[in-house]
Amino acid sequence: MGRTQPSYTMAVNRELEKLERIIERLHSPTLSLLLERVKEKVRYTQSASYDELIDPYNLVYFTLIWALAEECEKWRSTYLTLIRSKEE
């Protein structure tokens, strides 16, 4: 028997809280900003994986990877724009 949606959400929140405590101890503004992005996205990931049996830990870290990928894409786009402007 699987989890109920509220209990799954609570488990996801516990994983986010663990990650938040670690980041607080590291005193990293960069990681704090990334965690905010993860918190914004985690419910989308949770909804998308509703029919799948995904551990809350894995869901949070998948969302972390998603947030990192988007940040990398932003930097890539910025870099390509700068390169193109220098070529002109």
Rank of each mutant, 00 (worst) to 15 (best):
1 M>G: 09
2 G>I: 06
2 G>N: 10
3 R>K: 08
4 T>E: 05
5 Q>R: 10
5 Q>E: 12
6 P>A: 01
7 S>K: 12
7 S>T: 03
8 Y>W: 10
8 Y>S: 01
11 A>G: 02
11 A>P: 00
12 V>H: 03
12 V>P: 01
12 V>C: 00
13 N>L: 11
13 N>T: 13
13 N>Q: 13
14 R>L: 07
15 E>T: 05
15 E>A: 06
16 L>Q: 08
16 L>P: 02
17 E>M: 11
18 K>N: 14
18 K>T: 11
19 L>K: 04
19 L>W: 06
20 E>M: 05
20 E>V: 07
22 I>G: 09
22 I>K: 15
22 I>S: 12
22 I>P: 03
24 E>Y: 04
24 E>Q: 13
26 L>F: 11
26 L>H: 02
26 L>C: 07
27 H>W: 11
27 H>N: 15
28 S>L: 08
28 S>C: 11
29 P>V: 11
29 P>H: 09
30 T>F: 08
30 T>K: 08
31 L>P: 14
31 L>M: 11
31 L>H: 12
32 S>R: 10
34 L>V: 08
34 L>G: 08
34 L>H: 15
35 L>N: 02
35 L>K: 00
37 R>V: 02
37 R>P: 04
38 V>N: 06
39 K>P: 04
39 K>A: 06
41 K>Y: 05
41 K>V: 00
42 V>M: 03
43 R>G: 03
44 Y>I: 03
44 Y>M: 08
45 T>H: 10
45 T>F: 13
45 T>W: 01
45 T>A: 15
46 Q>W: 06
46 Q>A: 10
46 Q>M: 12
46 Q>R: 11
47 S>M: 00
48 A>H: 07
48 A>V: 00
48 A>W: 03
48 A>L: 11
48 A>T: 00
49 S>E: 01
50 Y>I: 01
51 D>H: 06
51 D>L: 06
51 D>F: 10
51 D>P: 00
51 D>Y: 03
52 E>S: 11
54 I>L: 14
55 D>P: 02
56 P>R: 05
56 P>N: 05
57 Y>N: 15
57 Y>H: 15
58 N>Y: 04
58 N>F: 06
58 N>K: 07
60 V>M: 07
60 V>P: 02
63 T>F: 05
63 T>R: 04
64 L>R: 02
64 L>S: 03
65 I>Y: 07
65 I>A: 06
65 I>Q: 01
65 I>M: 00
66 W>G: 05
67 A>N: 06
67 A>G: 07
69 A>D: 07
69 A>F: 02
70 E>V: 03
71 E>F: 01
72 C>K: 09
73 E>N: 12
73 E>A: 09
74 K>R: 15
75 W>R: 15
76 R>C: 02
77 S>C: 07
77 S>M: 05
77 S>Y: 07
78 T>Y: 15
79 Y>D: 06
79 Y>A: 08
80 L>C: 09
81 T>N: 06
81 T>A: 13
84 R>F: 03
86 K>S: 10
87 E>S: 10
88 E>R: 14
